[in-house]
């Protein structure tokens, strides 16, 4: 389903930084969102966020990075929210964060599911959520292709 135009901000929730594809896909997705003039905020652990900060040193793609726990707190307390929310899922914890975002945010939700257990994780998502799934751990191209198929704009 095409995404509505006129949206102003998006949150990308990072999982464990050991996922090889995560940083590359985050920057690719952020670039795609920035072209639509959508402000991109990335939340993650210190290591995951630092990977983004170093990779996007001059902030060409990501507007802001935030600590994951702080982001959860601000969403739960309704101090912030976003139009779009993308959550990386490559471990069981990712499903927990995805379900939490579904519960505490009104954003249109996307799950970016990858890794050897991608199909198993996909089957765990039984709530409203757009799933971007590729059984890949190191090669970002299958996820990139799925993102290009799913992230289209309603013109």
């Amino acid at each position: 389903m095409p995404i509505l135009t006129g949206l102003t901000d998006a949150l990308i929730v990072l999982g464990c930084p050991e996922s090889s594809v995560q940083t590359a896909i985050t920057l690719y997705l952020a670039n795609k969102l920035k072209k639509e003039k959508i402000r991109v905020v990335v939340a993650g652990t210190r290591s995951a966020v630092n990977l983004i900060k170093v990779s996007d040193f001059e902030r060409n793609y990501v507007d802001e990075t935030v600590d994951l726990d702080r982001c959860i707190e601000d969403l739960a307390e309704k101090r912030i929210d976003f139009d779009l929310c993308f959550v990386f899922v490559h471990k069981d914890a990712g499903i927990s964060y995805l379900a939490t975002m579904h519960s505490i945010s009104d954003a249109q939700l996307f799950a970016i599911i990858s890794g050897g257990d991608a199909e198993a994780f996909e089957s765990m998502v039984d709530f409203e959520c757009e799933k971007i799934v590729a059984k890949t751990s190191h090669n970002p191209i299958p996820l990139k292709k799925r993102i290009d198929q799913v992230i289209t704009w309603d013109v």
Partner: peptide, 27 residues
């Protein structure tokens, strides 16, 4: 703030609470 898939179940054992605590890298 408790992270998880609803319903999140929290146990009570006397004066103690038993609950899930999730971190991205450690499950």
């Amino acid at each position: 703030y408790i992270i998880g898939v609803p319903p999140i179940t929290i146990g009570v054992d006397g004066d103690y609470v038993i609950f899930p605590y999730t971190k991205p890298c450690y499950g």
